[in-house]
């Protein structure tokens, strides 16, 4: 604690600045508890989807609907964005705010790309496939699960965007570092949830 404050005072950043203060360590630990809750939340949505995935009510089935190239592109974009947020945290540990900001910006741009693909996908389903929220139990479960993940991506984009603005205003220190670290954890978790979505929803939907 004292060394962390001394280092912060004389302009150097402690090693792993997100864990240099008690508040920072508490923030990281509490965020893990939140992610445990998120796992339960997505688990219930997956449970609903798995129970209802074959109830198509004479509407489109998963096999007719999904196009794998689009899903593969979205998967690749999100995976790369998870790697760029690792690089952001590595730049933070080396006390390079400019490099950190650039990696965060790339992460946000990739997140926007993923979101764009999802919006395109949903609008295609609604306009050309007559696959809306109320078409079938399958469609409701699909839009709720995948849309909820998309909403998490949108929230992450806004959150990291605000942190980029705060970073340029207040600089990198033991107060801003835990916020950035926690947002990177959130982003990785979003990618982990997507791994289950592309497997369970899209690929298993194609298999039948």
């Amino acid at each position: 604690m004292t060394t962390a404050h001394a280092e912060a005072a004389n302009g150097t950043l402690p090693h792993e600045p997100e864990k240099a203060t008690l508040e920072g360590r508490n923030k990281v630990l509490a965020f893990w508890l939140f992610l445990g809750g998120e796992a339960v939340l997505f688990g219930t949505l997956f449970a609903t989807f798995l129970a209802l995935r074959n109830q198509t009510n004479e509407g489109p089935t998963a096999n007719e609907l999904f196009h794998l190239p689009l899903v593969a592109a979205a998967t690749f974009i999100l995976l790369v964005s998870s790697l760029t947020s690792v690089f952001a945290i590595q730049a933070m540990h080396r006390n390079r705010p400019a490099v950190l900001r650039n990696w965060l910006l790339i992460t946000v741009v990739l997140g926007l790309g993923f979101l764009g693909l999802e919006i395109y996908e949903f609008s295609e389903y609604i306009r050309h496939e007559e696959f809306g929220m109320t078409t079938s139990a399958f469609s409701s479960a699909f839009y709720t699960l995948v849309g909820f993940h998309g909403a998490h991506v949108a929230f992450g984009i806004v959150w990291i965007g605000i942190l980029i603005a705060q970073l340029s205003r207040k600089g990198l220190n033991v107060i801003t570092a835990p916020k950035i670290y926690v947002s990177a954890m959130y982003w990785h978790f979003i990618d982990v949830v997507w791994v289950f979505i592309f497997t369970v929803v899209y690929l298993l939907g194609k298999v039948g």
């Binding site: 992610l35 809750g37 998120e38 796992a39 339960v40 688990g43 219930t44 997956f46 449970a47």
Partner: peptide, 9 residues
């Protein structure tokens, strides 16, 4: 978290 999620599924 995963235990409760898995139980639900």
């Amino acid at each position: 978290g995963f235990f409760v999620a898995g139980t639900c599924i």
